[in-house]
């Protein structure tokens, strides 16, 4: 008599190519191999579609055929398969895989582009919180600014790349027809203060400033951590409040 635990493990082996699961299947019309292939196909196509939904810009950038090929190759490796039934949280390893996947290896910028897209995906489903506005600070005593701790919005994700991802995104979005890829870094913020995810491109100094805030430093500590000569606090805070970057504030003791 069949043991369910063994049968389910054998199905996993069948997904990886072992044919012994076919022995469980009753012979009746279509072959066990064909019957089993419906399940294997449903799994592969379902997971490929889940990746395409998470990484639509990557699909756009390298084309559907290439992206589908990368997805199917990714899905052949067991560690890449989802661990839970919540597919919304699955697929973070795909950008690393693109780095190793021979057909896309020459596109050095592609893994970072996909990593940014993953952060965009994370921002989309992050916890909702109403961001702070300038109005929330209007009655604050100036002497308290030094002690101010600004908590970043739950949807805020920062990313730095050695490649000009802003240029690449402009091409994918159709804002420009073609580019000569510049040799420079880019700094991005993916955030969804309300219902729409936005990508903002930051200066290196603003990126550093926000990194300090993100690790829990106070406003004054963040300012002390960067090169003040290149930093425009008023402009950076205005940008932050206009784009919903802060969700709460507190004071250091």
């Amino acid at each position: 008599m069949v043991n369910l635990q063994v049968l389910q493990k054998d199905f996993l082996e069948s997904y990886k190519g072992d044919s012994s699961f076919e022995n469980y299947i009753q012979m009746n019309g279509p072959s066990p191999q064909n019957r089993l292939s419906i399940h294997h196909n449903t799994i592969r196509v379902g997971l490929k579609k889940a990746l395409a939904i998470t990484y639509p810009l990557t699909w756009e950038l390298i084309g559907e055929d290439c992206a589908n090929g990368a997805a199917y190759a990714f899905l052949r490796e067991e560690p890449h398969l989802p661990k839970t039934g919540n597919l919304d949280e699955w697929g973070a390893a795909f950008p690393d895989f693109l780095e190793q996947f021979p057909p896309t290896q020459s596109l050095a910028y592609l893994p970072d582009f996909a990593r940014l897209e993953w952060l965009k995906h994370m921002a989309y489903s992050a916890e909702d919180q109403i961001p702070l506005s300038a109005h929330d600070f209007k009655d604050m005593d100036a002497e308290n600014y030094a002690k101010l701790l600004l908590k970043l919005h739950p949807s805020a994700h920062f990313f730095s790349s050695s490649f000009p991802l802003d240029q690449i995104l402009a091409v994918v979005n159709g804002d420009v027809e073609s580019i000569e890829l510049e040799s420079r870094k880019s700094y991005a913020l993916a955030i969804r203060p309300f219902q729409t995810v936005h990508i903002h491109w930051l200066s290196e100094i603003d990126f550093a400033f926000f990194s300090y805030l993100q690790k829990g430093d106070s406003l004054i500590e963040a300012i002390e951590g960067i090169d003040e000569k290149k930093f425009h606090l008023h402009e950076t805070l205005s940008f932050s409040l206009q784009n919903g970057l802060f969700s709460e504030y507190a004071f250091t003791s």
């Binding site: 008599m1 069949v2 369910l4 199905f11 996993l12 449903t42 379902g46 398969l81 661990k83």
Partner: peptide, 19 residues
């Protein structure tokens, strides 16, 4: 749909046994 901490996005049938 799930075995050994691997989840398959499919509804895989079960053998209809006592177990």
């Amino acid at each position: 749909s799930r075995v050994n901490e691997t989840y398959f996005p499919d509804l895989i049938p079960l053998p209809y046994t006592e177990e």
